[in-house]
Nucleic acid binder design. Structure first.
Lengths: 272, 272
DNA sequence: CGCGATTTGTGCACCTGTTCACAAGCGCTT
DNA sequence: AAGCGCTTGTGAACAGGTGCACAAATCGCG
């Protein structure tokens, strides 16, 4: 632990694009095949680099950057080596060109237009989230199914009805959408988005979307994150108890143990 | 793609608990060492199972559950086999006991108290997020540094000042905290939480927290998710251009082909 | 101008996780 | 009671990712 889990690592198959037609053609020099795990870390490196740049550095060692990004330095070096090299031995990496390269790879050299569907509780917050704007994205459209919300201004953008999706997605050339609808509506909305031309979706609804192969979907489920933490909590306390037991076994102090007796009991209850 | 990336896979080191003291003692029968990748998928299985139960099923095949959870069936079976077996050959899994077992493993048999720090834009939405309550968690306390927000009621809970963290965390026996502060404040707040006894943190602030070994941290960075999608968008368009070029190079019927991309190209399309 | 300190880039071994493919097990039907 | 079809559980091969450890490269300094 404390090795931060960043909420997307690798695990899932292959190099990005390793199977695409371009493999046949040989990969483009300016577009190397990056391991998916590396791609997932690049944004973190980018953030760390921006921070370093703002605090007056113009060079970092792999050690320093790794620390700031929460990974180990060998991994960092290997990741960066995949982008073609931007470091100088004995010195480190020049921050500015490195930032440029990562931004280019991530496609952040042009600010991308994003649509957000579902301005309920969470959607509303996302619409106002400054982090999107400051890190390469522009919320270009808001949609909701609820007619009473249509017209509402959030952060200067008017909420439109989901019926307008085809029109707006085309006119604004939107390819990325954020889905913050209730679970029940998510699939239908996703279908509409895809039909309108969206090819990447960030899904906050707790459902597995069923979409064509070529559409990229990332899922963020807030409750899932907590449940994973809960598991570790459970384990910690179980281990703790066990440890205590082990100690007690060796010794006399049975009393302390009695208090946190094994939670083997109750199950069920819980989720509504 | 379309193989949904769930925003946390494995990649990060070892079996859960493989290094804990209990390894020495031999692992408990009721608390097997689960691969981290498996743990990350359990919540998704649980959600799918609840959904199935609600729609009247009381049995599922690995195929069916895998479909509902967005994974392949072999993976699912292996995952479930780690919890000790709950399936019947020729039939499938009994939903009810399986739900119970997963909830037990995840430590959801008791409803866990969670503290949320930072009731700004995002924090406010999280405080009102119904998904937490419905999936095993109880927001037991809200904190903010801003005195003008202290006292405000959100979802029936009063916002308290972060100075009260030690007291409240102890009295409510809180071990999990959600961090939704601005980046600048996150580290300091995290330190306070840990000092007060919190041992798991879900961090929404875009910073790498530096905390003791035994504290579990999961990070969710919304902009990072979009940046990863952006990468894939970028790649898709780059590939598209390339493909077009290649096709143009090769043939006369560039036009017809351009639309559907060659069958060879279609194969496997992209990672996952 | 050469030497030592430093730091990158990478070959390699290890390890986790995924997937395949099939034997074992179960229930239903005849 | 035996056979058949279906589904689980898992051994084994594979794939991808990680981290070590070191050679190669660069800089600064005397």
């Amino acid at each position: 632990m404390s090795q931060q889990r960043t909420g997307h690592e690798a695990g899932i198959t292959g190099r990005v694009g390793a199977v695409t037609p371009s493999a046949v053609l040989g990969s483009q020099p300016d577009f190397p095949d990056l391991p998916e795990a590396t791609v997932a870390r690049l944004p973190e490196y980018l953030r760390a680099l921006h921070h370093l740049a703002e605090t007056g550095h113009d060079t970092v060692s792999s050690e320093g950057l790794a620390l700031a990004a929460g990974v180990n330095s060998a991994k960092l070096r290997k990741d960066l080596s995949h982008l073609g090299s931007y470091g100088t031995r004995g010195v480190g990496y020049d921050i500015e060109p490195l930032v440029g390269q990562i931004e280019y790879i991530l496609g952040l050299n042009k600010r991308r237009a994003v649509a957000l569907v579902g301005v309920g509780n969470l959607g509303h917050a996302l619409a106002g989230y400054a982090g999107f704007a400051s890190r390469g994205f522009r919320i270009a459209a808001l949609f909701d199914a609820d007619l009473t919300r249509v017209g509402e201004l959030i952060n200067g953008i008017a909420v439109r009805h989901i019926g307008d999706i085809p029109e707006v997605v085309k006119s604004e050339a939107i390819s990325i959408a954020v889905l913050a609808t209730p679970a029940g509506a998510a699939q239908a909305v996703a279908d509409q988005l895809v039909a309108a031309g969206v090819t990447s979706i960030l899904n906050f609804a707790p459902v597995v979307l069923n979409l064509p192969e070529q559409v990229d979907v990332r899922k963020v489920d807030l409750a899932v994150e907590l449940q994973i933490l809960s598991f570790h909590e459970h384990r910690k306390s179980a281990r703790g108890a066990e440890q205590a037991k082990a100690l007690a076994r060796g010794a006399e102090l049975a009393k302390t143990v009695a208090r946190n007796g094994s939670p083997v009991a109750a199950r069920g209850e819980v989720a509504a």
